[in-house]
Amino acid sequence: MGHRFSKRSMDRAREVDPLLMAVAVIALSRCAVDFGLTEEQSRSVAEQAEKVRRGVSKTMNSAHVIAAGLAFVAVCVLMLPTLGWCVATASSRERAKQDRAIEAANAQARATDTAARDRAADQRLTDLKINNRLEKERTDAVSSIPDARPTAGRVALACHRLREQGTRDADLPAECRPGR
């Protein structure tokens, strides 16, 4: 896509109707198939006169001169199916390009998501280790207190642990029941 007429094709098209030439230029810029103008499609009156003078052509009433614009129209009409194919191909290529870009973005998002999940799992493991260590330290600190008569703090901690374990108020020791 993005083809342009060569200088030679543009020189040959100087006798062609400018509107038709504009259509051809747009068609060529959007089409994946490159095409050009041959000499037979656009012979000016001066070129025909030169061909008659040299003896290459016998008449000034040549179909190349008379029908140069009509030949170009015929070429444009014949190009319509190709242009339709070019437009369809271009849009499918654009869609494919967009799909590739979306897939690349999705792959990047999946990679970022995987990395974030791995970091979160590592952080959860670290937190679990820290919590277990702190729980052990707290248990050791409570256990290190002599058993003679527990302090109010040790009783409150023991009551709190019993409640966390799901013990009903009716099953708690008297020291742990509400209103005490």
Rank of each mutant, 00 (worst) to 15 (best):
R117F: 04
A74S: 08
D17T: 12
K129R: 13
G179L: 04
I145D: 03
K7I: 09
D11I: 14
N61S: 05
D147N: 04
S143Y: 15
A111S: 14
V155D: 03
E137M: 02
H160Y: 03
A22V: 04
P173D: 01
A104N: 09
L70K: 13
Q123G: 11
N132D: 13
T112N: 13
I66F: 02
R133D: 03
S44L: 00
S143M: 12
R138C: 09
P81F: 06
R133P: 03
V56L: 11
H64D: 06
K136R: 05
Q108A: 15
A63E: 07
Q48N: 15
V52Y: 06
L78V: 14
A105D: 08
P18G: 13
D34S: 11
F5Q: 08
V155H: 04
H160M: 01
E137S: 07
S29E: 05
C176V: 04
R110S: 05
H3E: 03
R138F: 06
G153A: 12
L134I: 07
T82L: 10
E137Q: 10
A104Y: 14
R117Q: 04
E47M: 14
A96I: 02
N61F: 05
S29M: 12
A49H: 02
L128G: 06
N131M: 14
A67E: 00
I26P: 06
A156I: 05
E15G: 09
A141D: 14
V65T: 13
T151A: 04
A141G: 11
E47G: 13
L128M: 12
V65N: 01
L128W: 15
L134A: 10
L78I: 10
G55Y: 01
E50W: 11
R14I: 10
G179A: 01
K51W: 02
S6F: 08
A174I: 09
C176F: 00
A174F: 12
A158L: 13
L134H: 07
S144G: 05
R110W: 12
D11Q: 15
F35I: 04
R100M: 09
